[in-house]
Design a protein around this nucleic acid. Sequence first.
DNA 1: ACTATTATTTATCAAATGGTAAATAATTAC
DNA 2: GTAATTATTTACCATTTGATAAATAATAGT
Lengths: 187, 187
Amino acid sequence: MTDFQQFCNQFSELNELASLELVQTLKTKTFQKGDFILKSGMVCKHFYFVNSGLVKMFSTKDDKEFIVRFFSENLMFTAFESYLTQTASNFAIIALETTTVTLVSQKKLEELCKKHHSIETFFRKLVSVATLKMTKRIREMLEENATNRYNQFMIDNDLIVQRISLGEIAKYVGITQQSLSRIRNQK
Amino acid sequence: MTDFQQFCNQFSELNELASLELVQTLKTKTFQKGDFILKSGMVCKHFYFVNSGLVKMFSTKDDKEFIVRFFSENLMFTAFESYLTQTASNFAIIALETTTVTLVSQKKLEELCKKHHSIETFFRKLVSVATLKMTKRIREMLEENATNRYNQFMIDNDLIVQRISLGEIAKYVGITQQSLSRIRNQK
DNA sequence: ACTATTATTTATCAAATGGTAAATAATTAC
DNA sequence: GTAATTATTTACCATTTGATAAATAATAGT
């Protein structure tokens, strides 16, 4: 069983037929460091599963980047609003390392959700987990100052922080790189 | 058809049996202004639909409140992490006005999701919409300063802002009431 | 190894926001 | 209608963060 199939089964035990049909739709693609997986303004046609590598999902305003989240091995991502509504994305996704992803077509996943209850359940639970992470993020942004948000980020992402530059972390925490450098060195 | 049923059908056309079974599980409850619908530390056992009134969902830290969102007529809410995992909630919910809600039992909705594909679909889409709203919120908190966040709040909630005090809005925007008063009067 | 490029740190000053306190305004209870 | 309570505004000063610039450090390309 592939990592992707294991990932799915942790949410909902897919029956054999559903699993087979899902696997048949999959494609794999590799992006080099710096490559856009999705550009802002494009319509996101896939859900992605990270087999290896690391990506950032971000928005841009006044030439400044704001990072929504990093995704590394064994995580799924998509530009969800664009994916759901099939409209232009406000977010872009770039590979921070050579990254290999498994692609799940939006159209096909939508069909499979209709056809197989177990896939619908998988999708429901996948989105539910995303919602929990977002709630945590919103709460942290409201309650915590930049120092605490940085510290929490380092705890939550301890397995990948050494692969992410200070500048990128600052774009996640929501402050300038200079401010983060200051925070980090004032202990 | 009740407002709640109409709400459900806008996400997924529920078949007759599913709709009937869902409706049979419903209860209604009224909370007075200031009442807790859910206290922090309690386990959230329901999804709620607002028939009338207005509630705030918030967390507390160092005696300060941080509002995640307001919910008024024809919206559904729950303390989602607590609801999903049936563990103690980090969030509380209070009625800001006399509020009548329709209650959907977590246990029964979970059963109905298993039994009826169309209810699972409804739930999946409901959670998906919540995810979109949260993404928008995270993006705004990263990109925009307090002035813009306040203005955006007033636009997004134009139908209910006159029912919400300045202090509560400040707890949503993420600044002190004094700062918001200053922002509002510096034009 | 050397150069160019990129990343990080440091510094200075300006702007935004917080903490505290007090004044004023609005609302509610009797 | 008046007093009590609650909500909002204003003011002052401290703290945090941003903007800009420059210095230093690390990395990559040759």
